[in-house]
Simulated assay, not measured.
Amino acid sequence: MSKVIGFIGCGNMGQAMIGGIVKANLVTPENIIVGDLNRENLKSAAEKYGIKTTVNNNEVAENADILVLSVKPNLYQPVIKEIKNHVKENVIVVTIAAGKSIKSTEDTFERKLKVVRVMPNTPALVGEGMAAICPNDKVGREEAEQILHIFESFGKGEIVDEKLMDVVTSVSGSSPAFVYMFIEAMADAAVLDGMPRNQAYKFAAQAVLGSAKMVLETGKHPGVLKDMVCSPGGTTIEGVAALEEKGFRDAVISAVRKTTQKSIELSR
Score class of each variant (00 low, 15 high):
105 T>N: 07
107 D>K: 14
107 D>I: 06
108 T>G: 12
108 T>K: 09
108 T>L: 15
109 F>R: 11
109 F>I: 08
109 F>Y: 13
109 F>G: 12
110 E>M: 13
110 E>S: 15
111 R>K: 15
111 R>N: 08
111 R>A: 08
112 K>D: 15
112 K>T: 12
114 K>E: 03
115 V>F: 01
116 V>A: 02
117 R>T: 01
117 R>L: 01
117 R>F: 00
118 V>Q: 13
118 V>S: 12
118 V>Y: 09
118 V>F: 03
118 V>M: 09
119 M>N: 14
120 P>C: 02
120 P>R: 03
121 N>S: 08
122 T>M: 11
122 T>L: 11
123 P>W: 00
123 P>H: 01
124 A>G: 09
124 A>R: 06
124 A>Q: 08
126 V>F: 04
126 V>Y: 07
129 G>W: 01
130 M>C: 13
131 A>Q: 05
132 A>G: 15
132 A>C: 04
133 I>S: 05
133 I>N: 10
135 P>E: 04
135 P>S: 05
136 N>Q: 02
136 N>Y: 01
136 N>P: 02
137 D>G: 04
137 D>I: 00
137 D>L: 02
139 V>P: 06
139 V>T: 02
140 G>S: 15
141 R>S: 11
142 E>H: 08
143 E>R: 06
143 E>D: 14
144 A>M: 06
144 A>N: 04
145 E>S: 10
146 Q>M: 15
146 Q>L: 15
147 I>Q: 12
148 L>M: 11
149 H>E: 15
149 H>W: 08
150 I>T: 09
151 F>G: 10
151 F>K: 08
151 F>T: 05
151 F>L: 05
152 E>L: 01
152 E>H: 05
153 S>K: 06
153 S>R: 08
153 S>M: 05
154 F>E: 07
154 F>Q: 13
155 G>C: 03
155 G>R: 04
157 G>I: 00
159 I>S: 10
159 I>L: 13
159 I>F: 04
160 V>M: 14
160 V>Q: 08
161 D>P: 06
162 E>L: 03
162 E>K: 12
162 E>W: 04
163 K>P: 02
163 K>R: 11
164 L>I: 00
164 L>T: 01
164 L>W: 03
165 M>Q: 05
166 D>E: 10
167 V>N: 10
167 V>K: 08
167 V>M: 12
168 V>H: 04
168 V>C: 09
171 V>G: 12
171 V>S: 13
171 V>R: 12
172 S>M: 06
174 S>A: 15
175 S>I: 04
175 S>V: 06
176 P>G: 10
176 P>K: 05
176 P>M: 03
178 F>P: 00
178 F>Q: 01
179 V>L: 14
180 Y>G: 08
180 Y>D: 15
180 Y>I: 03
180 Y>L: 11
181 M>D: 11
182 F>K: 11
184 E>K: 14
184 E>I: 02
185 A>C: 07
185 A>W: 03
187 A>S: 14
188 D>K: 10
189 A>K: 09
189 A>R: 09
190 A>Y: 00
191 V>D: 12
192 L>V: 04
192 L>F: 13
192 L>S: 14
193 D>Y: 12
193 D>H: 12
193 D>N: 14
194 G>N: 07
194 G>P: 02
194 G>Y: 02
